[in-house]
Every structure is written in C-alpha cells, then in structure tokens.
Design a protein around this nucleic acid. Structure first.
Length: 129
DNA sequence: ACCATGACTAGAA
DNA sequence: CTTCTAGCCATGG
C-alpha cells in the first residue's frame, strides 16, 4: 500500500536557533562532540539524531574531517561508529593516537573496538535535553 | 545545476 | 556470521 511512512520529526527540541542555521552543520556537530564527557564515547548516528538528521550520520563523520582545524579542539576520538569501532582512527595524525587518547581516559580499546561500548556510550540528547 | 565523495546505518541475502 | 545494496544529506568541483 502506498502508505507513506511518517517521517520522524525530532527537529531538535531545544537546540538550533529559531530555524536559523547561522552556523554550518559542521559547527553544530563540533559543538555536540565537544560536550562528550571524558571516558565516554558516542556514535555518529547519535550525534546526527541529536541534530535532527539521524539519517545523515555521514555528515557527522565528514564534519570531523576538519575537526582538527576547528577551535577549540574537538574530541573526535570520542566519536566512533555504531558498533564502537574506531572507524575514524585512520584520520588521526598517528592512527594509534585515537585509541591512545581513549585509553588514557579510561576507555579500553581492543582490536580497534571500544570495550563495553554499550556502557561507555553517551547519548548527546541526555545532555542537550 | 549536476555529479562525485564521505570517519554512517539499516536492512536484506 | 559475512557481504552487499540502498538511503541519507552537506560540501566541493
């Protein structure tokens, strides 16, 4: 049946100025990423969902591509994919820097994957509520 | 304006 | 379990 699926309407509850996207999508991503507490990690999809476009997790990752050019520093090492895999480690100056930073914060990484990812997972929506 | 890219995700085979 | 397909959307050439 041609029943159209009800498009989700998160659209950011408290975040995002009155429909005014002064800041690029990237800035928004950086802002959320910076709020990830130490010792915690989150996924691209979670950040994207927090921004209202959970289907555009790719944008989040891409935004991180220039995270090192943004100030203040963006803890991109706390952002992993949905299974806890350090998919973005290859983009770090030394790729091992990512797991190194995580380990230093108390996040164990085994085989490029965050251990106890489910427990370490931090939902941006909880903080930006 | 069109086409290609991308640190993703969900679902199907 | 692995592998593939398709959707998604912002940025750049």
């Amino acid at each position: 049946m041609p029943i159209k699926k009800p498009a989700s309407q998160p659209k950011l509850k408290g975040l995002r100025p009155s429909g005014k996207r002064d800041q690029s999508f990237f800035e928004l991503v950086y802002e959320v990423a910076r709020q990830i507490p130490p010792g915690r990690v989150t996924s691209y999809g979670a950040i994207a969902a927090c921004l209202g476009t959970k289907l555009s997790a790719r944008m989040v990752g891409w935004a991180m591509n220039g995270s090192d050019k943004v100030k203040p520093t963006v803890p991109a090492h706390r952002v992993v994919n949905r299974v806890g895999l350090l998919s973005g480690k290859i983009h770090f100056k030394p790729p091992e820097k990512m797991e190194q930073l995580l380990k230093k914060e108390g996040v164990l990484v085994k085989n490029d994957t965050v251990v106890n990812f489910k427990e370490k997972f931090w939902d941006p929506a909880e903080s930006l509520i």
